[in-house]
Every structure is written in structure tokens, then in C-alpha cells.
Amino acid sequence: GAIDVKDTVPLVLKELRVGLALGGFYGIILGIYGYFMHHSLQLGQVVGLTILGNMTGAALLAVLLPMIFQRLKVDPAVATGPFVTTAIDILGVLNYFVIATWIYKL
């Protein structure tokens, strides 16, 4: 009950900024690491973009799912954990394969 559903847009934008900032930072670091350790620009791009997408998606899911559950009259504290974890895992792997397929086809 600490978050009002009316505050959805400001909260989503805040989490989006945080996810993009952290994902961009870690994506650059891990992309450079992947490039230098395996001498592959494509691998560095895949790793960097995947981290960027995964961290941004995780931040958005973590703020949106509790609000969705609250609107559905389901206790967000109980339902959010399993759904966020599962969704982030599934979307993260899917994101990785989509980006890898896209980068390696170029």
C-alpha cells in the first residue's frame, strides 16, 4: 500500500532511467571484457546489448508487475516474487538469443 497506482508513469520512468543507466554501464564493461577476453567484437556486442536489455527489462517488470497485481486485487507482495523471477529468466534468455542471432547474421 506504499505505492499508489496513480503514480505509475513517474515510477515507470524512474525505473526505466535506472535500468538503462545500470544496464548501459554494466553492458559496456562486460562488452569490453568479452571483446578483450575472446577477441570478438560480435561477442562483446551480444553480451553488452543483452545486459542492457535484461537490466532495463528487469527494472520495468519489477515496478509494473506489483501495480498490475494490485489492480487485479492480488497481494503484490506474495505474487510478484515468483512472477518477476520467472519472467526475467525467460525474457533474459530469449533476449540473449534474439540479439545473438541478429548480431551474428550481420
Rank of each mutant, 00 (worst) to 15 (best):
L106W: 12
Q42N: 10
F69W: 06
Y33R: 09
P10Q: 14
I90W: 01
V18Y: 07
V18G: 03
R17V: 14
K73P: 04
G23S: 11
V46Q: 00
F83S: 01
W102F: 14
F97P: 00
A87D: 04
Q45N: 06
P76M: 06
I28L: 13
A2R: 09
L94F: 05
L94A: 14
I90A: 10
G44D: 03
G81W: 01
G34L: 01
R71I: 07
L91R: 05
V5K: 14
F97T: 01
M55W: 13
L43K: 01
P76I: 04
G27L: 09
F83Y: 07
V93Q: 04
M67N: 09
A58Y: 00
V84S: 05
V12M: 14
A77C: 05
G81N: 10
P10I: 10
F36A: 01
A59E: 06
T50H: 03
V74M: 12
L49A: 14
A87R: 02
L30S: 09
A77D: 13
I90C: 02
I51R: 07
A62K: 04
T50A: 10
Q42G: 03
L43Y: 07
T56L: 15
G31M: 09
Y26G: 05
Y26H: 07
G44I: 00
Y104D: 01
S40R: 02
L64Q: 01
W102P: 06
L49S: 07
G53E: 03
S40F: 01
P66M: 02
G19D: 09
G48A: 12
D75H: 10
G92C: 07
G57V: 04
I68R: 00
V98G: 06
G53K: 03
I90E: 04
L49E: 05
K105W: 08
L16D: 08
P82D: 11
A58T: 14
T80E: 00
A79L: 10
V74Y: 01
L61E: 01
V78W: 08
F83K: 05
T85M: 06
V84P: 01
N54H: 06
D4S: 15
F83R: 05
V18T: 15
V18L: 14
L91D: 04
L65T: 06
I103Y: 04
G24L: 12
F97V: 00
V18R: 09
I68V: 15
I3W: 07
G31K: 00
A100G: 02
L43W: 03
V47I: 15
L91E: 04
F25H: 05
T50E: 06
L72C: 10
V5N: 10
T101M: 14
Q70P: 03
T8I: 14
T85Y: 04
Y96I: 05
G92W: 01
Q42A: 08
G44P: 00
